[in-house]
Nucleic acid binder design. Structure first.
Lengths: 255, 255
DNA sequence: TATTCCGATAGTGAC
DNA sequence: GTCACTATCGGAATGAG
């Protein structure tokens, strides 16, 4: 199976629910959610619309082909993707807490003019720390402020705008978006220019490490202040935030 | 010692003849001949003018600086280089015969705007088969028909031409020559376009192998025809051309 | 047009 | 904007007490 058509092959299967669990995360009536085979962050899923009347698979090639159909129909597909993505997001948030002890941003959005056939909504965590994130194109395609990554909420808002605005945004011409991928590297958090990819990857790791440190301190502080107000409870079960890395939130502080 | 000034350091030594034999091939009153440290062919030498009155080392930075001096003085330096290069060429031709059983072209010439300081005349065999020949710049800088490699005979002929022509050729501006190094790869023998360096290197090897085969056949034929005219000699010692590769030129052909 | 190292860039082929 | 592979292209450092 070619890389370019693998997603289409999934939605055209008679029993997609039989896909191996390393590929398929969830199968609903409207959507398949698969693990991105080359995750560009710690969490990275693709939500695919299943082929359902009145749409045919050719209507679902990409966002552009979908937006050419009746607005109501297109909107319904996007709403289905959104609903499924919310479930995925909730699952990711739970995993963030249980595995890493804190939560960080999750982005949901599309790429204009993707290479892989069949519309796919990216659900990706904002760390962008992954060995599969290798080049400028990879990074810029997920940069949340650059303009290439089309946030789902923005795309949905096009439906509430002027028809002329909707038409303009629906064009999604490769030539309009291609140059964005070649722009200089800048950190999406601190907006600093970064010399090259190895430097960027180091920086992203540092930024995420910093966020983790701050978030855990914040959580510990909150927990401590809550404890101060509580009636002391003998041997309550430990909450998820305390399960990793041996950080000591033993309450031996101020109280 | 930096790569860029190593040649200058040689000619400024009080006793250049004491240079190790792996570096210095020959030292005359007027010239040093050194082995190119990164030979771009089986045989590759550099002939350097020694610093002698009325010239100073700064007059000998490159061909351009030399050609700015009095024509007579400049011509004398080039003639000294030429004389030494002829000696080197003779030596190479002997080595070609003794090591490989045949002879092939040897080119003598300059590079306009070289990186390494101090004028150096390249004496290089036309095989261009060497692991140190790695990129397009390397190859194009020795391509005998491209215009970047300035054949010694051509440079000497400038002195017999109109002063205006001499002036024009003496300019040797980097901007005029640089683009030549980026031209597409073509075989200097058969003029065919070649896709990339690995392909070119294979092709150059084949071309040289072909030349060797043809030359050895030619030599064998000539030898055979000479032999036919000779009074038969019992057990003559084998000549140099026959010492390698076990090719059978047994004379069983037409004669 | 010194080399070498690193990294970005470009074209290809994949099934 | 699929990946992985190959090759090219582009800048920077280079030695040395």
């Amino acid at each position: 199976m070619s890389n370019l058509t693998v997603l289409r092959s999934y939605v055209q299967m008679s029993k997609p629910e039989s896909l191996p669990p390393a590929i398929l995360f969830n199968c609903s009536e409207t959507c398949l959610t698969v693990f991105d085979a080359f995750p560009k962050a710690i969490f990275h899923f693709l939500v695919l619309p299943r082929v359902r009347p009145p749409l045919r698979v050719s209507d679902l090639t990409d966002l552009r082909s979908l937006l050419k159909r009746e607005r109501k129909t297109a909107k319904a597909v996007l709403q289905d993707l959104s609903d499924e993505a919310d479930n995925v997001k909730n699952m990711i948030q739970e995993e963030m807490l249980s595995r890493y002890g804190f939560q960080w941003q999750i982005w949901m959005g599309f790429h204009p003019a993707p290479s892989m056939e069949h519309l796919h909504l990216h659900v990706i965590s904002s760390d962008l720390c992954s060995p599969k994130l290798k080049n400028k194109k990879h990074y810029n395609s997920f940069h949340p402020k650059l303009g290439f990554f089309l946030h789902l909420s923005d795309v949905l808002s096009w439906f509430d705008a002027d028809p002329s605005y909707f038409e303009m945004m629906s064009r999604l011409r490769k030539k309009d978006y291609e140059p964005l991928l070649k722009e200089d590297l800048t950190c999406w958090r601190c907006e600093r220019a970064v010399k090259n990819m190895p430097t960027l990857k180091e920086h992203l790791q540092e930024e995420w490490d910093n966020e983790r440190r701050k978030e855990k301190a914040r959580i510990a502080k909150k927990k401590a202040s809550l404890k101060n107000r509580e009636v002391p409870q003998p041997s309550s079960s430990p909450s998820q935030e305390q399960t990793d890395e041996g950080q000591s939130y033993d309450g031996s502080g101020k109280s």
